[in-house]
Design a protein around this nucleic acid. Structure first.
Lengths: 248, 248
DNA sequence: GAGAATCAGGCAGAAACCCGCATAAATGCG
DNA sequence: CGCATTTATGCGGGTTTCTGCCTGATTCTC
């Protein structure tokens, strides 16, 4: 078996189960433990997974419990500052949830006059601190995992919204696979949100680049802007620019 | 199971319930008590949680819990405990916002199975920590003053709800004037909420008794229960009992 | 203050890890 | 094709990490 082939299979296991044991891989791929360990080492160096004692974990899985530790806060503030250049007085803006969006809200200019629709109570609370911003919270079933409202009622309300800009975090983006996720309900929700706005900007820290998860939300053709903490000239963003996205 | 995986699961439990017992984790993760204790130790060293005798606490809870800032907190907890006697498994409950309601939510039994509709994002977030509770956040314009959603859209959604119990704080109650308030929009909102439930309980610390404000929300005939921190036998509650309210 | 629960530290076996080395496979070049 | 070079793999042995058990100390509860 080719080394490259093994790597593919390992990544498939990771994306499928979010985790994998070294010993299981030994069994599955019929090579020595050392080989597996070396494979995991290079995949870890390539930021494809997270090596831990006994095996490896999915990189995006890890982000699940960042919410109070404010993971990669510096990067998120950097993203926020870039995003602000897209926001003008008078705009109607639709946002998702997540720590990246929260950081953005905290960085908004104090005098901004705008209307924000959001599915995240946290974002709504943060937005409410600005006098000039009108906040509309879209109601529905409240997801314990994602901390946003979701379900049919949310989607039908979204259908009536016509925003200038949609701002969304994501757990994975890939040049070919586009935006992907692991939760079907949230998936449906994001699809609906992308339909509501003329411009759609994805806010995403660099470690979530070039990752594909199981469920496809949308291809890159429906995204207009990609905002990361990296310089737009950065090599690893070239593939996205090639797809017609504006890179900030 | 990988060590890192265990840490993730422990943090999830913490974020969900704000606290966790060592013995519960032993049961959940199927490892020895020593292992759990060591895990808690490293997570504590990493500032991810707060280790205490017998288990661990959420760090953010701790900071959110310095709320001696919450006025008359003792009284509100007392009110919460009385209110719980009204709540049974399977109920559909509609709540308003305010610190009294938040305290109530924090005191709910962990195994409660119920459906909550609420207009307060803060209440929704707090409710979401209970596995057995389905939370529906009613969407609309988000009021910067009252920190609840309001407006025509909220009221029209309320019209479709038929709850067993409506729990509401209030800023004033009076034997003759009933429930009164100062804000016209919130006024309209509360009127609509009172229409949605078979039973309506007012949660109210004693110092708000016997006060009338400018705008009338409803007379006492639409209220079924009054819950204060005082003993039901207390003299100053007699006038309300005379109006047919159940006093707890 | 007694008894139970919880905790901290040390110990040992097992598992996982890392490193160097030798062999095998692949690659490049004349 | 033959041979040198590079790369990949497996193995052995020493090291580290993890986990459960044990013991004595501490804390909690009644």
């Amino acid at each position: 078996m080719l080394k490259r082939e093994r790597h593919e299979l390992i990544m498939r296991q990771i994306n499928l189960h979010n985790r994998v044991l070294t010993t299981d891989l030994v069994d599955l791929l019929q090579v020595s433990e050392d080989t597996i360990r070396r494979d995991l080492q290079v995949l870890c160096d390539e930021q494809k997974l997270l090596k831990v004692h006994g095996g490896a974990l999915s990189r995006s899985y890890q982000s699940a419990y960042d919410d109070n530790a404010i993971y990669a806060r510096e990067a998120k503030i950097c993203i926020a500052k870039k995003t602000i250049s897209l926001i003008k007085d008078g705009m109607v803006i639709l946002t998702g949830g997540g720590t990246t969006i929260i950081e953005l809200v905290k960085q908004l200019p104090v005098n901004l006059k705008a209307t924000f629709f959001t599915i995240s109570p946290f974002v709504a609370i943060e937005l409410a601190k600005y006098d000039g911003i009108e906040v509309i919270l879209i109601g529905g079933i409240f997801s314990k995992n994602s901390k946003v409202t979701f379900g049919g009622h949310v989607i039908s309300q979204l259908a009536g919204i016509n925003a200038d800009l949609c701002l969304m975090g994501t757990s994975a983006i890939h040049p070919e696979s586009g935006i992907t996720d692991t939760d079907w309900e949230i998936n449906q929700l994001k699809k609906a949100m992308f339909q509501c706005a003329r411009k759609v900007a994805i806010l995403c820290i660099s470690e979530k680049l070039n990752i594909a998860l199981r469920l496809k939300v949308t291809g890159l053709e429906n995204i207009t802007h990609l905002i990361t903490e990296l310089s737009p000239a950065e090599h690893c963003l070239a593939a996205y620019r090639g797809k017609g996205l504006n890179i900030l």
